[in-house]
Design a protein around this nucleic acid. Structure first.
Length: 1142
RNA sequence: UGAUCCGUAGCUCAAUGGUUAGAGUACCAUACUUAUAAUAUGGCGGGUCCGGGUUCAAAUCCCGGCGGAUCAACCA
């Protein structure tokens, strides 16, 4: 007969390794997928990691989450294919390579060719792939690593090109100017990623100016001027921290709802009388209250305070379209050069009254808000600064001066100061001061960034905004708030997706176009390539037109194949196409955002639509994805955006492969995923972010080596909800190892020990629960309740709750109650009905637990499962991951039984605590416990478990006290939930009234079912259901209570009880000797005991009991046993002599 | 700067708006131990980050701060 394996001690890392080896030999993962062939697919998308960095412990949590869901769904009968993937393009890769080679971006194409550079990136990006694969294996993450998608592969890029060409065809891909951070010192635009490097935003002091734009007096502005004399001037006051943008000013923006005032005052620098407009809320910044309506006549240049007077007040909306004179006119910045209709007052919602004057100086070239409002009002654009960061020609004394000290010139004179001085002199400045603010700097040159208009390609996501918002409402977000809050907000404030990146290692934008004509006029021809075949065709045409030619030795086809074999730079840039009018077309220089790569994975991982259309149709959209919360606006967004944008294109392709009549709209609504779990960050144990710099990074390999993957995974999942950021502490894993795995291991070990002795291998027929003892029915009921709850939790993507429930069951119910109370059933008596019941019950619990915990801790569960399975062959499965998830049997669930067992546990705990209080050890039997019962049902419940309680706490009898005999002192309080609505404000009064109830009052209420109170002389009827009555005390007894349960213990130790206690104590001493002598559990013994008067009566009286317990035929009382062991029984000392019976 | 999330005992976490805010762990003490690196019992330990408000009742809902985290950025 097969035996259950027994172990010396729990070794989780060894179990991991052993199980892993078995999986690999048996192809357990592949088989788990094959076994579900033909089943409903459950679609999972793997968010591609970048393998150019080492994996950390935070990767273990998101991958555990992904893995457990996939394993769970497999066990629930779905087929879950899991295609792995690698994210391979992008800035981090390039920066890593540059660091490794010791070069900068400028060196590319000079010190190193683009081809070599990109080759290095291609190689480096998978540098740590082995490490990643190892982590994947070791942590037990089942994902297909043999056939992953890789974003740099041609097929992948071809799919991306198809998507781009579809978007282009629908007018959703366009080129436009955008205002982007730009570093003149480095000569390059900066990505937001670069701008978010630590230390980029710095506090700096800049010259800020409140300047005065002179209003034009005309019909529209007359309402402002009406109280002014004909020669009086009126100014709009605007504030800027970048005076160098003033020559490019084309508008002034006010908030439509903000109140503005017209103030008569004096210019603090020239002391000339002026009238200025500014936000009312900011008056205090410029004028002192005591000077209001001050004396203008006596003001002199020495006066400290400016007199002022409010002449009028208007909403910003009223100022719209008023005109003003250009502040700094030169030959280079004439309105004609700007185009449009400049120098007007505009309305913008972004204006605030936090700072400045409430009027925003607007230079469309140098701010994104400015650009947006400028475009809306068509005020044109002036770019008075070149790409080196200096003023262009034709700006008088400022021409060719750097707007910031970009060249580290020791003699640099701040042009912003000079502009301010000029404005002061011209009566155009109201306040010039140094202002400290937070401003972005280039991470490489440390010089201030400026916002500058650059060409870029965009995806018109805003066109599909409504669809994206609608579809988002159908996504199951975990946690919900991320979808509604962070993601929902992000969608509401969506801007078009800027795709352009001016780098080298990435997916090239497949747009070719003719050169601009010399005069810049005339339409340019443009083509967006959507496939390799199309590209080849175009190259062939170009060769025919003589624009390209194969090198010597290559025929045309070889050349075409060669040049299209790598769709990266520099090769694609060598391709020159021919336009319909015969002109050469060159590729635009841009690469695309890497987020596009990963967001397109649902399509590109299958090389859709060029092949695998059916596979795609079955694997779109995803049922489930999971990544860190930092991906909300990254991967989660790009997947969602492309899903919405491509809906129609996908439908067109799928029409070709799905059966006629398929409701495409229902099946493919443009959604990329149905459920998304965003997990939180992993912090170190002090709550700090893990970073190499701080040296607090936890090495996942070491952790798994030391504790095994199971304990690590269990800890990560049960410690905190996945979406909360967790403080990672190795002590927590130790605790999980000890408390949960240790307990479960020991329970198994206990089972194996006795099952092997008795030869239990589940060959007897399954005994129906009704034929099993109460305690078996109870644990089976709890077990099935557990299955229900765990299933619900996992279906709801709440693995934390599931794990905690399993823990609680194993520890509280199975190990520390069921096994503890049932121990004797396993080692006492013959192998017959009761014993078999016990074995079957415990076996079923262990086997079910192994299946319930399998998704979270795949190794240990498989170990436990196969240990059981190998001995019984009950299910005939090679792995727990090939069997179904347990299904609860409703017939086994008996809630009243679970409830009364809880009462038994509580009662035992209370009685033990009373024993403790009076210092009577458990081995000393006591006579009686009193338990007041509040109703007949409670008594009934308790009676059914009284044997268990009596045995557990070693008392002989339980007496129930019903409420009416006046023996118990009761307490009453309102049932707040029931009374809340009825009483409202009277609650307090009722509460006080109840507190003053006498025992008689309570009794009356109990008897009659209701009672009338007088609150504020108003009668008020309270029914028995609206109060809670508990028994508090039994006068004269030692009492303890918990919730509704009260127990009182009779602590009198009669001489008879003392004798029995002695007998028990004696048994205990003999058992210890048995153990010390190393006897087997079944060995019978011979016992000789010194005849001590104090104990002899006990030994005689309980002779039978003692012999049964210690496996002796009799106890021989002798005068003084030779070679005896000295023992102590309740302060009685004596010698005993124990030998094994031959 | 904004949006979102989080803030409860030394630590890790609970608590459908309902009345002494609970577990585990750590620490101390006692007992127990033929499954247990166990267990039982008791003790120690917070008034829920701070300040307002709504409510008969707030850890929980609202407003404003503070601190931490993430993402985003365009702040004149």
């Amino acid at each position: 007969m097969a035996k259950y394996k027994e172990y010396q001690q729990l070794n989780l890392p060894a179990i991991s390794q052993e199980v892993l080896a078995k999986w690999e030999t048996n192809r357990a993962f592949e088989k788990s997928v094959e076994l579900r062939e033909g089943a409903t697919p459950f679609v999972f998308y793997e968010g591609p990691p970048s393998a150019n960095g080492l994996p950390g412990i935070h990767h273990v949590i998101s991958r555990t989450l992904k893995d457990l869901v996939c394993r769970y769904k497999t066990m629930r009968g779905f087929q879950v294919k899991r295609k792995g993937g690698w994210d391979t393009h992008g800035l981090p890769v390039e920066l890593g390579v540059e660091k490794m080679l010791g070069i900068t971006k400028e060196d590319i194409g000079k010190k190193i060719s683009i081809a070599e550079y990109n080759e290095t990136c291609r190689r480096e990006v998978l540098k740590y792939k082995d490490k990643w694969d190892e982590l994947t294996r070791r942590m037990g993450y089942w994902v297909d690593l043999k056939d992953p998608y890789i974003t740099f592969e041609n097929n992948y890029i071809e799919s991306l090109w198809w998507i781009l060409s579809e978007l282009y065809r629908k007018g959703l891909l366009y080129e436009s100017v955008s205002i982007q951070p730009y570093s003149p010192a480095a000569g390059t635009g900066l990505s937001s990623h670069e701008l978010n490097q630590p230390g980029c935003y710095k506090d700096v002091k800049d010259t800020s100016a409140v300047v005065m734009f002179k209003a034009v007096r005309d019909k529209k502005s007359e309402f402002l001027f009406k109280d002014l004399a004909a020669d009086e001037e009126l100014f709009f006051m605007a504030w800027t921290t970048t005076p160098w943008t003033l020559p490019s000013n084309l508008g002034l923006t006010v908030g439509p709802k903000i109140d503005y005032v017209l103030v008569k005052t004096l210019n603090p620098y020239t002391h000339l009388p002026v009238n200025v407009v500014l936000a009312k809320a900011l008056l205090g910044k410029y004028f002192k209250p005591e000077a209001e309506n001050g004396d203008f006549a006596s003001h002199s240049s020495e006066s400290k305070t400016l007199p002022w007077k409010i002449l009028g007040e208007h909403k910003g909306a009223k100022l719209e379209e008023l005109r003003y004179e250009q502040l700094l006119p030169y030959e280079a910045n004439t309105p004609e050069k700007a185009g449009g209709d400049p120098f007007r007052v505009l309305l913008g919602d972004f204006v605030t009254t936090e700072d400045g004057t409430g009027i925003v100086h607007t230079a469309p070239a140098f701010g994104a808000d400015d650009y947006k409002v400028g475009t809306k009002y068509n005020i044109g654009m002036l770019v008075m600064v070149d790409r080196q960061g200096k003023f262009i020609d034709g700006l008088g004394e400022f021409s060719n001066r750097y707007v910031k000290n970009y060249k580290d010139d020791p003699n640099y004179v701040d042009v912003n100061v000079d502009i301010s001085v000029k404005l002061k002199k011209e009566n155009r400045a109201f306040r010039i001061e140094k202002y400290e603010h937070n401003y972005p700097h280039c991470w490489r040159t440390d010089k201030p960034v400026l916002y500058y208009p650059l060409d870029a390609w965009f995806i018109r996501t805003t066109a599909l905004k409504d669809r994206m918002v609608e579809l988002n409402k159908t996504i199951n977000w975990k946690p919900r708030s991320t979808g509604e809050g962070r993601f929902g907000n992000w969608l509401e404030n969506m801007v078009d997706w800027n795709l352009s990146r001016s780098r080298y290692w990435g997916t090239p934008l497949p747009v070719w176009r003719t050169d601009p004509d010399d005069d810049g006029a005339g339409a340019r021809e443009e083509i967006c390539i959507g496939s390799v075949a199309q590209l080849k065709e175009a190259v062939r045409a170009s060769i025919m037109a003589g624009l390209m030619s194969p090198p010597v030795g290559d025929d045309v086809e070889t050349y075409i194949n060669k040049i299209t074999s790598d769709l990266h730079k520099p090769y694609v840039d060598e391709i020159v196409l021919v336009s319909t009018t015969g002109k050469p077309m060159r590729r635009v220089a841009d690469l695309i955002d890497v987020w596009f790569d990963s967001g397109a994975m649902p399509y590109a991982q299958w090389h859709f639509p060029f092949e695998n259309q059916k596979t795609f149709a079955e694997n779109y959209p995803a049922d489930f994805i999971a990544e860190g919360v930092d991906q909300t606006r990254g991967w989660f967004y790009t997947l969602h955006a492309l899903g919405s944008l491509l809906k129609e294109s996908v439908h067109e392709e799928l029409k070709k492969v799905v059966p006629a009549g398929t409701d495409l709209d229902a099946k493919y609504p443009g959604l990329a995923y149905k459920t998304v779990v965003s997990n939180g960050l992993v912090l170190d144990k002090n709550g700090n972010k893990m970073s190499k710099r701080l040296g607090n990074v936890v090495n996942p390999f070491e952790t798994i080596d030391k504790f095994g993957a199971d304990a690590t995974r269990w800890y990560l999942i049960t410690n905190a909800s996945p979406w909360e950021s967790m403080k990672f502490d190795l002590d927590g894993i130790r605790e999980v190892q000890r408390k949960f795995f240790g307990t479960l291991y020991n329970t198994y070990q206990f089972f194996a020990l006795y099952a092997n002795v008795d030869g239990f291998d589940f060959k007897e027929a399954y005994i129906p629960p009704v034929e099993r003892p109460e305690i078996d029915r109870w644990i089976l009921s709890s077990l099935n309740s557990l299955i229900v709850k765990v299933t619900e939790s996992l279906d709801d993507y709440e693995p934390t709750i599931a794990g905690r429930l399993i823990e609680e069951f194993v520890d509280e119910h199975l190990s520390n109650w069921y096994v503890r109370l049932c121990r004797r059933r396993f080692w006492k008596g013959e192998y017959e009905h009761d014993k078999i019941c016990a074995y079957q019950t415990l076996y079923e619990c262990l086997e079910t637990i192994s299946r319930l915990m399998a998704p979270i801790s795949p190794f240990f569960s498989d170990w436990l499962f196969t240990n059981l399975e190998d001995a019984t062959g009950r299910i005939r499965a090679a792995s727990v991951h090939h069997v179904d998830f347990p299904v609860a049997n409703a017939d086994f669930i008996d809630l009243p039984l679970e409830e009364r067992m809880q009462m038994a546990q509580d009662a035992s705990s209370l009685i033990l605590s009373l024993r403790k209080k009076v210092n009577i050890k458990v081995r000393q039997p006591l006579q009686k416990v009193l338990i007041p019962v509040l109703n007949p049902a409670m008594k009934d419940q308790l009676q059914k478990v009284e044997d268990l309680v009596m045995a557990e706490v070693n008392v002989k009898e339980i007496q129930y006290l019903s409420g009416t005999d006046g023996f118990i002192k009761k307490k009453i309080k309102p049932n707040f939930i029931a009374l809340g609505k009825k009483l409202g404000a009277k609650m307090k009064a009722v509460s006080t009234a109840l507190a003053q109830f006498t025992q008689e009052n309570i009794e009356k209420l109990e008897k009659e079912g209701d009672i009338t109170l007088f609150i504020d002389k108003e009668p008020l009827i309270l029914t028995i259901n609206e109060v809670e009555i508990t028994s508090e005390d039994i006068p004269g007894w030692v009492v303890a209570n918990k919730n509704a349960l009260t127990v009182a213990l009779d602590v009198t130790v009669t001489p008879e009880l003392a004798q029995e206690g002695n007998a028990r104590e004696f048994v205990n001493r003999i058992q210890k000797i048995r153990k010390d002598n190393g006897y087997d559990l079944t060995d019978r013994i011979l016992v000789k005991v010194a005849d001590v008067p104090a104990l002899s009566e006990s030994l005689n009286r309980f002779n039978e009991y003692i012999c049964a317990e210690i496996l002796a035929d009799s106890i021989e009382l002798v005068k003084e046993p030779a070679n005896g062991t000295e023992i102590e029984v309740n302060d009685i000392f004596l010698k005993v002599f124990v030998t094994k019976k031959a």
